[in-house]
Nucleic acid binder design. Sequence first.
DNA 1: AGCACGCCGACT
DNA 2: GTCGGCGTGCTC
Length: 703
Amino acid sequence: MRLKVLVDLPRHSRLDPLLDYLAPEAWPAGTLVRVPLGRREVCGIVWGPGDEAASPDGEGAAVALREIAQVLDALPPLGEAWRRLAAFAAGYYQRSLGEVALGALPPDLRELDATQLARRLRRSDKLDRDAAKAAASPSADPAVAAPLPEPSAEQREVLAQLAAMPPGPVLLFGATGSGKTEVYLREAARVLEAGGQVLVLVPEINLTPQLEARFAARFPGRRLVSLHSGLTPAQRLQGWLAAHLGRADLVLGTRMAIFAPLPRLGLIVIDEEHDPSYKQQEGARYSARDLAVWRGRSEGVPVLLGSATPSLESWHNALPAAEGGAGRYRRLDMPARIGGGALPRVRTVDLARIAAQFGKRAVYSQPLAPPLVDAMRERLERGEQSLVLLNRRGYAPVLHCTSCGWKSDCAHCSAWRVFHRSDRTLRCHHCGFSERVPFACPSCGDPDLQPMGRGTERLEEQIAELLPGARIGRIDADTTRHKGSLESQLAQVHDGEIDVLVGTQMVAKGHDFRRMTLVAAVQADAALFSSDFRAPERLFALLMQAGGRAGRDAELAGRSEIWLQTWHAAHPLYAALRRHDYPAFAAAQLLERESAAMPPYAFQALLRAEARSQQAACAFLDAVSAATLDWPEAAEVLIFPPVPAPIQRVADVERAQMLLEASSRQALHRLLARWQPVLAEAAAGTGEARILRWALDVDPLSI
DNA sequence: AGCACGCCGACT
DNA sequence: GTCGGCGTGCTC
């Protein structure tokens, strides 16, 4: 008999990834198999009965069907709900079903034959028995575990409302330190009690250990596994197996974990739901948060989205229709900090006024204005810590020649090479091209090359001059390149070995610094006038999140401050920030978005193309745009003209993009569905005009 | 995507 | 005379 088997045939292959194979018996859908494909043998998933009709191609030359090579029937089939999720994700994000479904499996699993699988399953059995034994041992007795913290009145109220609610997405809007995690834990306890599995998603691997520790401490008898790309392939497979076999009660992971098969799924928690890391930025560009909401509805399971600064999409979804929102989610608010800790005071330094008072030099040559330096000096004297955020690593973003105007451009990209003083290199952050800093200008020979602008390395140096005696540390992608170095540097901060920490936004997320009473953002303004319409939203989230680092310690909370240096002190974003008023900020942003017909009031897709020449990339985009001219599917979709990508050339490849916008998701998807084969066809050219890569990004986060 | 086949430049 | 560059084509 014939079975339809799904294999990982990528996106624009003109072949359907659902292939017919011969099998001696009807294995159920979801069964993992190994099948011959061309000259190799690949992993496949049985998707259903095959076409018993003559030829799989429909007409003409019959294809000789081949036999399934092996059936991995030691593993339970992937369930119906899981297959629905994969199919939805593939359809929504316009990728091949095979790519999405097979790509959601641990890479190791796809390589295993039946014998190897049996061995892994035996190891999984043993792990399971060990875990059960550990759970039963006296040391893990729940009675001995730390007593449950008494929930605050606010938490009790939220929990009561959650208990009374029908299943559906809930936006938990709570300030940093308001105890959202306690709500997750209580909800998880309820679901575990009822025999369910809980899936918890966090934005970054860095944040898993902390949350893992809290869940492990609260549920000592329960099996908890994590799923993220930082695990070894074997660990990832074991975690996945534990989830799929229903042995893991709690699954904690990054966006990839949204595809974990969970036969007893009872709750999905998305922590920091606004975080852009939930959107995959290559391959199948899915949003784990949006898929979580879909999965929750599909499986009849509650979804808890937590944030102090929700995405405007979620905020809009949680706003009742009567208030102009979509009314799709329920919203629960937790405004107060636990332990009555005050929210940090927000202080804006008006650079225009500083320039008038201290002279232009004080503003342009010094990274920190005098009042901010004074405030940091006070912290230093009291033995407290300060954090200075600057979202740009390296010493200076560009080096230039004072006599001929040469700048350190990259030979392969339309970008500057960044001056890294520590190893005296000029490095392109886009293609990796790196060279020692030249002794003299490569263009005119003048040895006087000067750094322009400021990165974290230089900021660190300049702060050392402004605050003599202060112990200064720096955390960015350069100082945390080696495994474990982020942890050890964070430990230094915790142990009080650092007075002032300089860092990029990676330090703003999730880390809890007890003695940090000042957080300063040095170059906040850039986001106010960015061409990216989501920049203000990200800035607001970053500053609130960074502010959350300050004043975690209730006794110090009273003098915790967030400092902003700005030329636009009166900007409404800063005004809302001073009041910690996210709802006002969101209302203003939504009004702007609505009047400009932008998300969440419009639905977007971005078609990106890469070619040897900008002209070839644009020609492709123009051609596929023109193809839709007389389509009824295109009537409600606005297709903008092609434009060069924000970084036009990377590693000698030219990039262009084209935006699509529609007022309804359905209209956009009707066009995309018909468009897909046209794109594949148009990209198939040869020679210099050939398209190297193209990708469709549905709901793009940055344009 | 893999993995073949296929047709032109620098090596044992 | 071969080894190997990656352009083009196929996979139930």
